[in-house]
Amino acid sequence: MNKVQNNRAWWLVLPMFVLVAFSAIIPLMTVVNYSVQDIFDQNTAYFVGIEWYQEVLRDTRLHDSLLRQFTFSFSVLLIEIPLGIAVALTMPKKGWQSSLCLILLALPLLIPWNVVGTIWQIFGRADIGLFGWALNAIGVDYNYTANTVDAWLTVLLMDVWHWTPLVALLCYSGLRAIPDAYYQAAQIDRASSWAIFRHIQLPRLKSVLVLAVLLRFMDSFMIYTEPFVLTGGGPGNATTFLSQTLTQMAIGQFDLGPAAAFSLVYFLIVLLVSWLFFTTISHMEKDKSDG
């Protein structure tokens, strides 16, 4: 059978191309443009090739920041994914209690990011914040503005508070999608609750977990507002993550060239790690299907 080629169909895709061009490709190309030139003013620009890239990749400030960023993102994933699953598992399954839980869980997700930062900034203060004051009152020397560990813990805690609900909601919807027959069969087969989790719930949560891991990785890797408001990146540079370093470079110092080069590197890292996550997980599936 011959396939009929109708090139007029391309016209139908054209609006999408235009849209993508304006929303992604053109801005991205502007950044690429900056990253290979040294620009002094509107009329004076020199082509510098990969010089900015070399500079960026050798910059120890960025190395430190990148390391902090990875530490932060992986800590976030390690805490939020299991915690989210656990919350979803313990949530009531029906009735007004479940609606109430859903609303309570969704609340942190509805709060603007800079407000989240502000909330925790005040919440953690030793003088007027409930959290900081209470910790100090029971004898824990807690001060997130001066102590690196305290600052880290506060930022992590804030992120866990803000985003675990997302993971929990995703898992909850995944769990609700499992037909009752599976639980009944498990009961007939005398499966322990661990076996039910391991062989029924977890495999069926896989697709939402992939989504949750990717979303949480990407978002946490690009985190800016909350730690900026909470700690301002301090004490010192202890909680200065990549995007804040980038902002300092681009806006604080107006080093547009290196900042652009760095933006691209940043973008590629996010893309690469997400791709790694995704392929590893889909690959696991493939192996299993052959096994």
Binding site: P179, A181, Y182, Q184, A185, H199, I200, L202, P203, R204, K288
Partner: peptide, 10 residues
């Protein structure tokens, strides 16, 4: 049961 229930991961 009426509809097949298998443990997918096994």
């Amino acid at each position: 049961f009426q509809f097949p229930v298998v443990y997918d991961s096994m």
